[in-house]
Write a protein that binds this DNA or RNA. Structure first.
Lengths: 324, 324
DNA sequence: AATAATTATTGAAACGTTTCCAAAATGGTG
DNA sequence: CACCATTTTGGAAACGTTTCAATAATTATT
């Protein structure tokens, strides 16, 4: 493996000059550049990225910290984030936190030790106090009070749209199906939108929330159906598509027909929701735009420029399916 | 930010000693170690990972190169791979190739420039000739003739099981639904297993293959239904769950009922297939085991040990749903 | 107590870049 | 052609670690 010095010697120039050629600095004479380029080719030289990172004391790595890449919404987001990062010459490090605060902290530590250039974080736990302010961060779906920019979709309006669409489909006793999380997240605005719209419409509604039923769907929905029985719910707005799908699954097992007996709207618009039967009606998040916006914002920060906006909310829209 | 030398000075020892303490080398007197540890704590010293990588000329990064993280099968795989890598102290770089040979090559180049410690590749294109033999590689689902170990599931037996299950469900005119790819991949054995079992059972069958209908499902299935019409197919084995789901979707639009008119079996056992309605019967791949095995194999290679086996095939099993 | 054997420690060198100051080459002007 | 201004170049220093040969300290043996 040849290095800068080898190239410099072969080309009969100094190492500085070779370095300037590689980095496309201006002040190098065309004739010199040619000589260097020829030497590079002859030696089959490739710059040692690690040495560069070392000298510059920063890597071209950006970390994506999220609960689980297995989640279809996150995997779509990750897809676009990686694409955008690659265009900009950065590499993506993937970190699954499992939503556990300890693991999130562990990753933050590890990432700052590894001097990543920036972090894109989807964290639902309170890690605010322990943020390493050295490293640029963009948060997705969660607003920190510090100067960490946040990219999210317009969850509030999404909630209102969902309620309104349920209403249009004839629903008069709507329910919101959510999960309890310990800290405030932008996704909670879905509930707020739902409530505000229901009240605007003068409707009675149920809010049903329990801890995230990752491992215990049956218990979650079992409890819900007990509540539901005596309320005659005829419409459900679930906080995510997966929630909605699981609800439909359980509802059908209870002899409840969707959409005849109960209309359902989800949130996210994950790809597979078009393969669910009935096809899920949902509030589609602009995933691609969220991804690219987050990356751009992060890179702006990395290049040392200030971020004007604190929170960026990208519009959502209703995607009709067969459940409304 | 303090460095090794600062610590050494404060502790009144040489830099080498500090280095040995950090790396838990043996030969360091307890009393010295204590002094060093105290200095580290006092200065709040953290080792500079980049400098380490530089000195060692290798990173603790492992790349996962796959067509698209958006695909639910891959995202599950990636989840477990990241988990296993993290346990072993490695970080995961994610690379979406889009299945494009040019992009795959581009990533291979980039990764070797970045001196990643190893690569886990899911590539369906022929990149064999351009493999950088410097970097340890483990291939998933694709066997290279060179000494690149391959981890896959027992696709052949999976195909046989699928056909047998269709038969048990009463199918007598089965069809295989696949995609054409340019190079040989282990997944093609699914077809072979299907064929062999069908012939063992003395059944007539249809093999239907066209280029992967990523962008043009309608055309793909439209054509299939034209073929299908005059053959009275009553069972379908689709090469992936997503294929199966799309088939069911289209079949229902053509007034074909699943499973009454046609039984369907998929392959993969992706999480969401339990949310499809009807719930998909499928051949479940041991994703977690495949992930962990691949990582272990790669790390074995990285530590310089030879790999005995050339291809590792992990058993699959039938997961009954509502489509058979 | 002297010597040998072992264990522990030191600090310079090296890894491959980028950067920066000084020096050299070039170009323009009177 | 001599002088100054500008452009281009050379190469040492520095980034923070690991490693290794040399040296110092400790322990064991007689």
């Amino acid at each position: 493996m040849s290095n800068l010095k080898d190239v410099a010697e072969l080309a009969g120039v100094g190492v500085g000059t070779v370095s300037r050629v590689i980095n496309n600095q201006v002040s190098v004479k065309p004739k010199t550049r040619e000589k260097v380029l020829a030497a590079i080719k002859q030696l089959n030289y490739v710059p040692n990225e690690i040495a560069r990172n070392f000298k510059m004391q920063k890597s071209n790595l950006i970390a994506l910290l999220l609960p689980s890449i297995w989640n279809p919404f996150f995997s779509e987001l990750a897809y676009y984030i990686e694409d955008e990062l690659d265009r900009e010459g950065y590499k993506l490090i993937l970190c699954n936190s499992g939503g556990k605060p300890a693991k999130e902290l562990y990753y933050f530590d590890m990432l700052s030790q590894n001097k990543v250039a920036g972090i894109l974080g989807i964290t639902y736990n309170d890690i605010e106090s322990s943020l390493d302010t050295e490293i640029p961060i963009v948060s997705i779906d969660r607003h920190f009070s510090k100067s960490v920019p946040c990219v999210t979709s317009d969850n509030y309006t999404g909630g209102r749209i969902a309620m309104r669409e349920l209403y249009k489909a004839g629903v008069r006793k709507p329910a919101f199906l959510g999960a309890i999380t310990s800290v405030f997240s932008e996704t909670m605005l879905r509930k707020k939108g739902f409530i505000d719209e229901a009240e605007t419409l003068g409707l009675d509604y149920i809010i049903y929330e329990e801890p995230d039923p990752v491992l215990d769907d049956l218990k979650y929905f079992g409890n819900f159906f007990k509540v539901r029985e005596h309320r005659e719910v005829d419409g459900v707005f679930a906080i995510t598509d997966l929630f909605a799908a699981k609800y439909i699954d359980q509802a059908q097992k209870h002899g409840i027909r969707v959409p005849q007996d109960v209309k359902v709207i989800g949130f996210d618009g994950i790809q597979d929701s078009t393969l669910f039967h009935p096809i899920l009606s949902t509030i589609r998040q602009p995933v691609e735009e969220m991804a690219r916006t987050s990356v751009k914002l992060l890179l702006t920060q990395i290049s040392g420029n200030a971020i004007s906006q604190d929170t960026i909310r990208i519009p959502v829209h209703f995607r009709p399916g067969e459940t409304t």
